[in-house]
Structures are given as structure tokens and as C-alpha cells.
């Protein structure tokens, strides 16, 4: 088994303190025919941490996300959320337990307004969705939460626009706002900067930094942008061919020779 991957444990050491584990995979495996996309992965994410998963294309990162968020069921292994087995729970139940997820490919409600996209996320967390005789707009708190989330990602001015008309970078931020409005404790972000123009990345970085600083949410993300990963992460897990290759803080990962040869390559060794 790879590196210093965590095994069944409910506390995890990071940043000098013992922290509770929020989500944990135990021997998580998913086959696609003969391909072992995810192959016996053990990973534990500390509550309140910023944890990045990196690895070359095809390493199984997105499949791991699909398994952790309940979007896909594993061939074997378990997913534990705060020690509770959520492996076989339906998607909407997992969402209610505080797991929110963004997608690599933008995944919003295209012909609804930006505000309605986010308002639906807020409404999903409440208990009013079956009040068929009430007017949706009467539940002000959902709209307020949506507007607050849009403010956090800097999209407040576009609340009335139709989601499909947003530029790509704004759609990525809309996805973040959806997660924030859902008030998930654990945010699984699948390549939040994917397809974004270079000049928009710092803006998103700032949003992520703000979320981490102000909300105490746990963020687990898959990301190819090493600048984002190295500057924000408390912990980095490196995946390679469906397995965990290494795990550690950014400095340890940057210095790890196995990781360098598998993924980071020569270029990164000389970077600051």
C-alpha cells in the first residue's frame, strides 16, 4: 500500500493538532470492466482542513470523488462520514448529511436564473420543499442565503441573469455559490479552475481562501493547477493508477522523489 496513507482511525494529525476525521475511505475500490479505476484507496480527511488530491490524468481522482459523494457505488470498500457508513445511502441522503459537490464539467440548472440556481440549493437544506400550497418566494430565508452565497463568490450583480448566459469562469463560481448556499460541511470540488481563463484563477483562489478562513468548512479538491494546490492545501494526497502514491503536507509532497517522477516532473522542482 502506498506511502503514509491513513488506515482506520478517527483522529488525524495535521498542522500540529489532532483533528477529527470528517470523511474517510476504507479500501475503496471501483472496477470498470477490467479497469481498476480506484484500487483499494484509504484516505482520511481532517475536519476543517484543505485537502487536495492530485495525480496524472486517469489516476482515478474523479472516480474517487464519485464514490465519496455517493454519485457512484463502489465495487468494494466503505465510505465513512464522521464514522457513519454512508456507502450504500442514496445520493440525496448523503447530500443532507452535509456533503456538497461540484463537478469538473459545469453542472448547473441552465435556463434558470443565477439566483434560482443557488436558492434551490438553500431550499434543499430546509424542510419546506413539499409545501405545495405555499409560494416559493415567501420563504425569504432561502433567498437571503442564496444572495449571501452569491456575494461570497462575487456574483451578486449577476443574480438575475440566466445561468446559461454566464461566461465559463462565472459558471464555476456559481457552482461554488451553490455549494455554499447548501451549507455543506464538506465540499468536494472537482477541478474548480478547469477551463478557466488564467486571469480568473486568482479570483477563485481568493474565494476559496475566504471560504476556508471564514466558514471552517472542510474542502477536498481535485486540482491540476499546482499554484492553487500548493498555496492552499494543508494536506495533499497523490494518486497514481488508482492507488494512493503518497500523502503529506505541500513541502513533503514537493520533496517526495516518487511523486516528482510520477507527476510533478522536473519543472516543479525548481519552482518556489
Amino acid at each position: 500500500m502506498g506511502g503514509c496513507a491513513a488506515h482506520t482511525q478517527d483522529k488525524k494529525y495535521y498542522g500540529g493538532t489532532l483533528s477529527e476525521v470528517i470523511i474517510q475511505a476504507v479500501g475503496l475500490t471501483r472496477h470498470f470492466g477490467g479497469l481498476r479505476a480506484v484500487d483499494g484507496v484509504d484516505i482520511a480527511v481532517a475536519a476543517g482542513s484543505f485537502h487536495a488530491i492530485i495525480g496524472p490524468n486517469g489516476a482515478g481522482k474523479t472516480t474517487l470523488f464519485n464514490l465519496l459523494s455517493g454519485f457512484m457505488k463502489p465495487t468494494s470498500g466503505q465510505v465513512l462520514l464522521r464514522g457513519r457508513d454512508i456507502t450504500r445511502l442514496p445520493l440525496h441522503r448523503i447530500a443532507h448529511l452535509g456533503v456538497g459537490r461540484s463537478f469538473q464539467i459545469t453542472n448547473v440548472f441552465p435556463s434558470l436564473s443565477v439566483l434560482e440556481n443557488v436558492r434551490l440549493a438553500a431550499q434543499a437544506q430546509g424542510r419546506d420543499s413539499l409545501k405545495i400550497w405555499a409560494h416559493a418566494a415567501a420563504f425569504r430565508r432561502y433567498e437571503e442565503r442564496a444572495r449571501h452565497a452569491l456575494g461570497l463568490v462575487g456574483l451578486a450583480a449577476r443574480a438575475a441573469d440566466v445561468a446559461a448566459t454566464l461566461p465559463h469562469g462565472d459558471k464555476r463560481r456559481l457552482e461554488l455559490a451553490i455549494l455554499l448556499a447548501a451549507d455543506s460541511e464538506l465540499l468536494l470540488l472537482d477541478e474548480p479552475t478547469a477551463g478557466m481563463a488564467t486571469e480568473q484563477v486568482p479570483l477563485l483562489l481568493e474565494v476559496l481562501r475566504g471560504i476556508r478562513r471564514d466558514t471552517g468548512k472542510t474542502i477536498l479538491l481535485v486540482e491540476h493547477n499546482m499554484g492553487v494546490v500548493m498555496s492552499l492545501s494543508d494536506m495533499i494526497t497523490v494518486m497514481h493508477q488508482g492507488r494512493v502514491l503518497a500523502e503529506g503536507d505541500p513541502a513533503a509532497i514537493a520533496a517526495n522523489p516518487a511523486v516528482q517522477s510520477a507527476y510533478l516532473g522536473e519543472a516543479y522542482r525548481h519552482a518556489p
Partner: peptide
């Protein structure tokens, strides 16, 4: 116009996303 109707529209727009938000579609 009800909250339920809003979820129906969300299902029309993107059902997997609606489920991911926590709606039992």
C-alpha cells in the same frame, strides 16, 4: 409557484444536479 414546483423545474433542468443538492427527485 410553490417550493415543490421549483424542485420540479430543477428536475426538468438537470435531474442529477437536483439529486446532488439533496432532493429525492
Amino acid at each position: 409557484n410553490s417550493p415543490t414546483g421549483a424542485v420540479m423545474v430543477a428536475i426538468r433542468e438537470n435531474e442529477p444536479r437536483a439529486r446532488m443538492l439533496g432532493y429525492n427527485t
